[in-house]
Design a protein around this nucleic acid. Structure first.
Lengths: 121, 121
DNA sequence: GTAATACTGAACCACATGGTTCAGTATGCG
DNA sequence: CGCATACTGAACCATGTGGTTCAGTATTAC
């Protein structure tokens, strides 16, 4: 089993497993925002939003910088390359698996035809 | 904010946020397996593995069928299309965002040059 | 029929998550 | 200075997660 930095995958997939956090990423894709702006947009307390931002930061998907009173959040350095890579590989397995099943089915059909002929002999 | 069946995305990203479950998917990509086989492979009790399989089933990533004593697990109908779509869209946002930043930086450089000329006038 | 196998379900555990409130601290504005 | 703004941290709460054990039930093998 290939590994693909499992801890990072854990963190980023977990970060993506929440609609609010996905929403924050989409929001930051349009423009940087303060914690207050994000909290208002998603109808949540400052403290609650700060936790979500913390999770996203932990996964490397967001970076923040505090200037004066205001902490500005922006998209982080990661482009979800590893996550895409994992999913891509999974899809290849999936395809191979189902191709194999198709092959088995074809094989069964072929045998059936042979058996059919045998029975008619 | 476009929605992309958020509940499903929640379930599948959460299912992928665990190394054991990702391992189970990879394992099932090679061949179907019983709960016992999976539990042994991942050094876990039957009950524990059954929970993981339940999570994967809930996300549509695995299907199971019980014949006699044995419950056989195989890859489910989903190929993670929606997950890939979400990530793809995110990457587009990401690229656009950073292109914009580049543009802003260029704009600042241009202004600097203009200001420089002004100052020399 | 008895015993082993394969799973199932309930109950428990420690810890994480998604949210809150409340009481701060730090900064900016008049 | 004095007040409003913006965030921060601790504490709490309900619920979920990842695992266990233990006591079943259902199937298969001898």
């Amino acid at each position: 089993m290939v590994q693909y930095a499992p801890i990072r995958l854990d963190a980023s997939f977990a970060a993506l497993a929440d609609a609010t956090r996905r929403g924050v990423l989409e929001r930051l894709g349009r423009a940087d925002a303060s914690i207050t702006e994000l909290a208002e947009t998603f109808h949540m307390t400052l403290t609650g939003m700060k936790k979500h931002v913390g999770v996203l930061e932990g996964a490397g998907l967001v970076t923040t910088e505090k200037v004066g009173r205001i902490r500005t959040c922006k998209l982080g350095p990661r482009r979800l390359e590893e996550e895409t890579a994992w999913i891509e590989r999974y899809r290849q397995l999936w395809d191979a698996r189902f191709d194999e099943l198709d092959r088995v089915v074809e094989e069964l059909k072929r045998k059936e035809r042979v058996d059919g002929r045998k029975n008619r002999e």
